[in-house]
Design a protein around this nucleic acid. Structure first.
Lengths: 243, 243
DNA sequence: ACAATAGTGTCTATTAGACAGTATCAA
DNA sequence: TTGATACTGTCTAATAGACACTATTGT
């Protein structure tokens, strides 16, 4: 903070959101099809400009999400992901974008809002591979968001945020497998999860119906940080080789 | 990114730097005494406004560091720490600050630059405790930076960045002890560090002179990520109770 | 009965934690 | 020889990884 006698050049502040969820055991990211130039017609992250000088950054993020995807996500926890401020990243001028990451439990199908032609869940791997091109530098932001999620699964209870209010241990295992792109041993996974106090708590004597033996249901426990962490296997025995 | 027909309010972009180092086995942070209003005369993090629309954020960070602290830190790696954008955090108007974290190996005593009355290394614990008050929300930024450093010591080779080009294993242990504020067992520390391939490499047959048995010198190895991580003891046996 | 999913038990190898003594220098 | 710092070895408890079987439901 220096220089009080001249006015430094100002920039527009944008917020962008990386919202991740699981659909059919695959990691998906919420994207909107842009309805206005620039990049009209291509997919982009939900987000937008700070609207007035008094608006808080996270407030702007929540507002944009509601506007563009009509998602009622008051409870959605937004975590700061990074700042993207390369001088030429937006053709309209100097835009510094603050990116947030959120994990969505279930899948309230988004509805396109005012400025977005369409809002959809898209497979994260298609974005990361470049198969689906995004506007601005949003592919990079998605990549950073996915990487953050992978890391946070290790030392935090983030995985439960991918699940609904109640879930089975198998559900939880699917989260790890989808985000990490590997296969885990159910026996070791059960043991590890069960003995990590406060990670998950039994949702008393409730069960679930499919075909096969009913499963016990659990809820997210109070513990947010995992000591010792879940360990990501070391680049071997990757059966379902995603990415 | 929406709204193309009106111009959103712009904000000033600032960069702030948390530079950490070790002096006399204690964690220190680089602060400057502000030479201009607001907060003239109080300490603050080095930093300042983006100067022109084409300037990159990290470029601005490096420039400010050179200007305010006259530190020649081309090689200093700046890591994005966070964004601080509360509407009222700066009395001059809407300022969104991008904070960076860096770890400095040795201690080239800083020289006060143009806008800073003074530039000094200050003990981090005095800042965190509130004993030394900082301008703006800089105490919070320092707190976030220190917490980040603590975490990164666990799963990255960051600790070597606190040391000079060569160092002894004891030097490295002092880094962990100072940042974590605990005491470690030298035997277990030696074993752990030695068997983590690529963490440190021997700087061949060089020694050091003090009083006592000479120590072998090492350099930072190629490994940047530590698997398995160094583990921070669990809140017990904290002999030298810092913080 | 069979299919399908849920759940458990054991053995082994590795690792962290606790702990005490030897080695090498200068004075 | 003493003081001061550098280094090393062992035992034990906890944990991860590998692996196969039993349990409970619907059809």
């Amino acid at each position: 903070m220096t220089e009080d006698h001249w006015t430094p050049p100002a920039a527009m502040i944008a917020v962008d959101l990386v919202i991740l969820t699981l659909r059919e055991s695959r990691l998906h990211v919420l994207l909107i099809e842009r309805g206005v130039e620039p990049f009209k017609g291509t997919f982009a992250l939900p987000g937008g400009f700070l609207e007035h000088v008094e608006e808080d950054l996270t407030a702007a993020a929540h507002r944009e999400l509601a506007e563009e995807a009509t998602m009622d996500v008051e409870t959605l926890h937004l975590e700061h992901l990074g700042v993207y401020g390369s001088p030429r990243r937006d053709p309209r001028g100097r835009v510094v974008s603050v990116a947030y990451l959120a994990i969505a439990p279930r899948l309230p199908d988004p509805i396109a809002g005012s400025d977005a032609a369409d809002a959809r869940w898209q497979r994260a791997d298609r974005v990361l591979s470049g198969e689906l091109e995004l506007a601005f530098d949003h592919r990079q932001i998605v990549e950073d968001g996915v990487e953050r999620a992978r890391t946070k699964l290790e030392y935090s209870a983030l995985a439960t945020a991918f699940c609904g209010p109640t879930f089975t241990i198998t559900d939880l295992q699917r989260v790890y497998e989808a985000v990490w792109g590997i296969v885990l041993d159910p026996r070791n996974f059960y043991r590890k999860v069960q003995k990590t106090d406060g990670f998950i708590v039994a949702a008393n004597q409730e069960h679930k119906a499919t075909s096969g033996r009913p499963a016990k249901l659990f809820r997210a426990g109070p513990r947010k940080v995992l000591y010792p962490p879940m360990v990501r296997p070391t680049e071997t025995s990757n059966t379902r080789g995603e990415e």
